[in-house]
Design a protein around this nucleic acid. Structure first.
Lengths: 135, 135
DNA sequence: TCCTTGTTGCGAGTGATTCGCAAGTGATTG
DNA sequence: CAATCACTTGCGAATCACTCGCAACAAGGA
């Protein structure tokens, strides 16, 4: 948290109240948050932080590599600390989001690299499918 | 093409001019089309087919299993005949879209099934990463 | 040909995100 | 500690990709 603000400052940015509260909520959140949900959480502590400020901060924090966003489906993007990023399987039947351990992608990553020269990062878009309960 | 229209009719739908032209363009397109691009192509043959008609037809055709849509990145969805669906790798550097053969996903599919009970369909969202030229 | 019901064109509405701008405020400087 | 300056913010308007409502239209069976 302090490291993050130090990095922000090192890049010419400022440690504003909004930025601080947004980061606090991101550190406290245990699951992914949409920008809207994050804004609500932030507004509980600092009522006039505007949704557009949340978006702008998320963008800056992504540029710094502190935050990433993920698309879990057709709804809004979800944001989280980059250190917690992981891939997802989303059930088309019930919408359940299952966290996919990175090692599941080892083989795919190797084949994509060898056969297509492509290095995958499977964490940005979820992979759809059907969970055990929705077959 | 005629089979498709027969199926449409079998489900109580009608073989309208718009529907016909939209299907023609879908059959002729060699790569994925956004709804907007498809509308433009359609309008070259039938000028007053409205964008919303294209969307509505794409939705119907998806319900019938004839068409699928895919998200290749942050832009609009792209549509194609279901029979041509495949997975994609998208380079975050240059935006190149690489077609990913289904067999690359065999191992992942097996592991997801065994360990999480989840059946993947990797074709709906692209997988991001970096191509050989953008490392 | 008529009638029923699916379809269409058009514009307005929606959800998610981005932008423009003037006012506000950290942090460096003097 | 105050002045300065560039980064930030709040706010509303704009944008992008769709989605809807509705009255007019048109397939295709009777």
């Amino acid at each position: 948290m302090d490291d993050v603000l130090a990095l922000v400052r090192a890049r010419g940015g400022r440690a504003t109240v909004s930025r601080r509260v947004i980061l606090e909520e991101l550190f406290e959140a245990e699951d992914h948050l949409s920008a809207e949900a994050l804004a609500e959480a932030v507004q509980a502590h600092a009522p006039d932080v505007h949704l557009s400020t949340v978006y702008r901060n998320l963008e800056d924090l992504q540029r710094l590599g502190i935050v990433v966003h993920t698309h879990l489906g057709h709804g809004p993007a979800t944001y989280q600390l980059a250190s917690l990023a992981h891939a997802h399987f989303i059930c088309e039947g019930c919408g359940a989001a299952i966290e996919a351990p990175d090692e599941l992608f080892r083989g795919l990553a190797r084949m994509a690299k060898n056969r297509l020269g492509f290095s995958i990062d499977p964490r940005h878009f979820a992979i759809l499918g059907r969970c055990a309960d929705c077959v």
